[in-house]
Design a protein around this nucleic acid. Structure first.
Lengths: 213, 213
DNA sequence: TAAAAACTAGTGGTTTTCCACGATATCTTA
DNA sequence: TAAGATATCGTGGAAAACCACTAGTTTTTA
């Protein structure tokens, strides 16, 4: 396990960046790494090969929808923990962000203690939500956030190979199965994701992180 | 040679104007003169007979195409140095702006040092481009930003409908085209994204944000 | 204005997907 | 141990995707 984790902030207000930065001076194990005011600057940083563990992302950037941005970043960097910063804690907003890959939700006036707590939780693969944030009870009952369909071992294997642009025949050969069997697994993948065809399946997989871990 | 030069910013985001303004407080020889959020305000200023040496112009104003604006301003005020502000550093965009009279190109998160450097260069009749900007398309591999293939209008339309799980026939009907035509567009989408089939195309589209904007 | 790019549409294929069935074997767990 | 889920494979067929061409028209750009 690593000793320290790198933390970045993407928020168009320099003030927020500064606030987080100064907060984190009290947490040596979570060193503030970088602040970005634009998505482009953030992209450039990651493109240069730098590593990052956690991103604090403003939900309302200048021109961009932070949740969409979250989705995009999440697709490109599945291992990066994204924690949304927002004063808007409406349940549907929170749910939406979580579905698009956010791992946490904090208000902008977060305390150091809570910030650290959120970091620990998300690094452990959990989801952290600020106390005041309550999800709609009916949506809460399942797991912590999403009702992702459960895929069987074989279905996952087949799905991974579909993602690699392989045809049914190729997958069958690779897994030493009959094409019929692979077709059966495909069919059950469509059914589980309510897709009409492979396009829907791929979209579902990428957008909801169906294949993660 | 003058001792000081007047600098103005035309950008619809007040934040950017403020950012530049505060940056320039560290450069007494380049006093910040005025910030404008609309072209009309800028025009009014010049019409009143005030002088201006350099204009920092946002490439993406609210409703206007900054490059066209650049051309217009340049025709009216040939001696005014126009430096474009943009996060979009695609070669063709840069080339386009330069052809329309821009003398420089900078990202919005420019540093004071670079800003001053750009001013000096352009005042000397040269052209200044941010270091990450490459005019040669074949060098884009070295650029920090991913190269995205340029899709035509029709290709984008077709791609959007593919994303909606529509079949070729359905797309053809919706766009009032022959299925053959839709197939042609599909084929060129595959070719442009180096995909073997629709799976690769969808992955590419979602992961690289091909369809954005 | 000439060249290039985009858009259109076709022929005639082959391959792959997707569907609707049925059916047996194994593994898991209540 | 019985039920249920998972994994396996089949037939047959319709629909869709994909390929390799050609080629005329329109729009854009140099």
């Amino acid at each position: 396990m690593k000793k320290t984790y790198s933390i970045a902030v993407l928020d168009d207000h320099a003030l927020i960046i500064e606030a987080i930065k100064s907060l984190l001076q009290g947490a040596p194990d979570f060193p503030f790494t970088e602040g970005f005011q634009t998505y482009e600057a953030f992209q450039a940083y990651l493109a240069s090969g730098k590593e990052l563990d956690i991103l604090l992302l403003d939900i309302q950037l200048e021109n961009q929808d932070g949740i969409k941005l979250c989705e995009k970043i999440h697709l490109q960097h599945p291992n990066l923990r994204i924690i949304m910063l927002s004063s808007n804690t409406q349940p549907h907003v929170v749910m939406d962000a979580l579905k698009k890959g956010a791992k946490g939700f904090l208000p902008k006036n977060v305390s150091l203690a809570e910030l650290k707590e959120a970091f620990r939780e998300t690094l452990n693969g959990k989801t952290y939500l600020h106390k005041d944030i309550s999800l709609i009870p009916s949506e809460r009952k399942t797991s912590r956030f999403d009702y992702l369909p459960k895929l069987t071992r074989r279905e996952k294997e087949v799905l991974k190979l579909i993602l690699e642009e392989m045809t049914t025949t190729e997958i069958a050969e690779k897994l030493f199965l009959s094409p019929s069997t692979v077709e059966t697994h495909r069919a059950s993948l469509f059914s589980k994701t309510n897709s009409k065809n492979v396009v829907g399946l791929i979209k579902y997989t990428l957008e909801k992180g169906l294949l993660e871990d």
